[in-house]
Structure formats: C-alpha cells, structure tokens
C-alpha cells in the first residue's frame, strides 16, 4: 500500500514543473515538436509532387533522345545537366550531386560540433560550426546559381503551344521558366520546383542564421558561461533535418 502512495505522489510531481518530460530538456522537446510539424509540411509538398507527377504522361523513349515538351513530364537528368562556367555542355545531375555532397558534409561537421559540445571543447565547437556555416553558405550559393539557370533557361528554348496570361492560346519559343510556362515540361513542373526547392532553401537560410548565432555565442564564450552547449545540439537537430529534407527532395525531384 505504501508503495502505491509513493507512486501517486511522484505522478503528481510530473505536472508540478521543474522536471523533464520524456527525459528531454524543454528546448530539445520543443525542437522535436517543431521538426515533426515541419516533416508534415514537407510531407505535404512531396505528396503533392508525387500525385501531380503521376497524373501527367511520362516521357516514353530513350533518355538520350529526350526533347522537352509540355505534353509530358521531363526526365530530370536531361533538364538538370548544367555546370557553372561550362556553358551549354551536358553534365547530367553533376551539379545537384555536388550540392548533395556539400549538404551531407555540412551535416557531418555539425554532428562533430555537437560532439565537441558534449565534451565542453570550445575551440572544437567553434571550428566545426565554422565548417558547417561554410557548407551551408556554399549550398545556398549553388542553389542561387541553379535557380538562376533554371529561370533563364537554355540558348535554344523550346517551341511550345500554351495558354498565355491573356488567356490566349499561343505558339512560341519559350526560354527558361516562370510560374505560367516553362521550356522544360508542363507548368506544374516549374511551379513545384520553385515552391519545394524554394521552401527548402528558405529553411537552409534560417539554418545559416542560427548557425552564425551559435558560432558567435560559442566563440565569445556565452555557452561556456552557461555551463553547457545545448544550443549547439538544438540547432544541430534543425540542421540535420534540413539535410534530411534535401535527401527526399533530391530523390523525388532529381532522380524520379
């Protein structure tokens, strides 16, 4: 009987404040909640992409003979094949592969920063955060180039028949992409590209700001005064999540 009484007492204690539900600190728990809701947001994007993608005709024929048209969904390796400074040459998926590599590596340096934080090693935290920051900024720069190339398009463009903004059916050569029409494929292809990679890029931008904050605070010794490096851990969770989303965006957008 007495053991029951003790149990009730400790159960009341759970709601009394000053403890850690689910054995996670307040900040980490809230970060996980946020990430779960963000998973749903990106999940919705991927579901939209998958459903729209499958509701359009697929390109049938050899990849090498692919010609853009708004009649069918494009093959990603024939669309994303450009590299900076190498104008008009065909390097299928090389640039996006590089971007994936950069983001995965920045995730690795982030986990090393978190590990250094556990050891209270200020100089290591600062070093690895700086590498992560560099990776994040490089990734964003790559994405800026990718977007710019996608918007401006190729030299040849594509001859398309489409309904223009004046609601008229026109037949003309289209260069690059906007939300109404694009030279690569059906209009939703570019729309989904802009929304999904744009939203992901927005997350990376926020991540870079947070990383800079952590870098600064670690460097000037704020975390050392605080006695722990939990902030690095929380921002690390966010940064890994951004990497996780990119893994899915990469598969759905550039491979499938």
């Amino acid at each position: 009987m007495s053991s029951t009484a003790i149990e009730i007492k400790s159960k009341r204690g759970v709601w009394g404040g000053g403890n850690e539900p689910l054995k996670a600190s307040y900040g980490k728990l809230m970060m996980w909640f946020f990430l779960l809701s963000d998973i749903f947001t990106f999940g919705a994007f991927l579901i939209t992409y998958g459903a729209i993608r499958m509701s359009y005709p697929a390109y049938e024929g050899a990849s090498a003979e692919f010609v853009s048209s708004n009649e069918y969904w494009p093959i990603p390796e024939m669309i994303f094949d450009a590299l900076p400074l190498l104008h008009g040459m065909h390097f299928p998926l090389v640039f996006v592969g590089l971007m994936t590599f950069i983001l995965i590596m920045s995730s690795v340096t982030m986990v090393l920063a978190v590990e250094a934080g556990h050891r209270n090693d200020r100089s290591d935290v600062v070093k690895w955060l700086l590498w992560t920051l560099l990776g994040g900024i490089t990734f964003l720069s790559c994405q800026a180039w990718e977007w710019s190339h996608f918007i401006h398009g190729t030299d040849e463009g594509t001859m398309l028949e489409y309904v223009n903004s004046l609601n008229r059916l026109v037949s003309e050569t289209v260069f690059g992409a906007n939300l109404l029409v694009n030279e690569y494929g059906p209009a939703p292809f570019a729309q989904l590209f802009f929304v999904i990679t744009g939203f992901h890029g927005f997350h990376v931008t926020i991540g870079v700001v947070l990383l800079f904050l952590a870098f600064y605070q670690a460097a000037v010794g704020i975390y050392e005064q605080r006695g722990h490096y939990e902030m690095v851990e929380k921002i690390g969770l966010y940064w890994h999540f951004v990497d996780l989303v990119w893994v899915f965006v990469f598969t759905f957008f550039y491979l499938i």
Binding site: L36, G50, A51, R53, M54, P57
Partner: peptide, 24 residues
Amino acid sequence: SIIVPIIFLIWLVIALMKEGAEIF
C-alpha cells in the same frame, strides 16, 4: 511519437502517387 506519424506519411505518399496514376 516521431516515428509512427512518419510511417503513415510514407503510406500517404505512396497512396497518393497511385491516386495520381489513376487521375492520369
């Protein structure tokens, strides 16, 4: 509480890809 919703989410992705194919 993190993993279980994600598993259902994967189900939804696959289900709606199938649905998209039906719309096609």
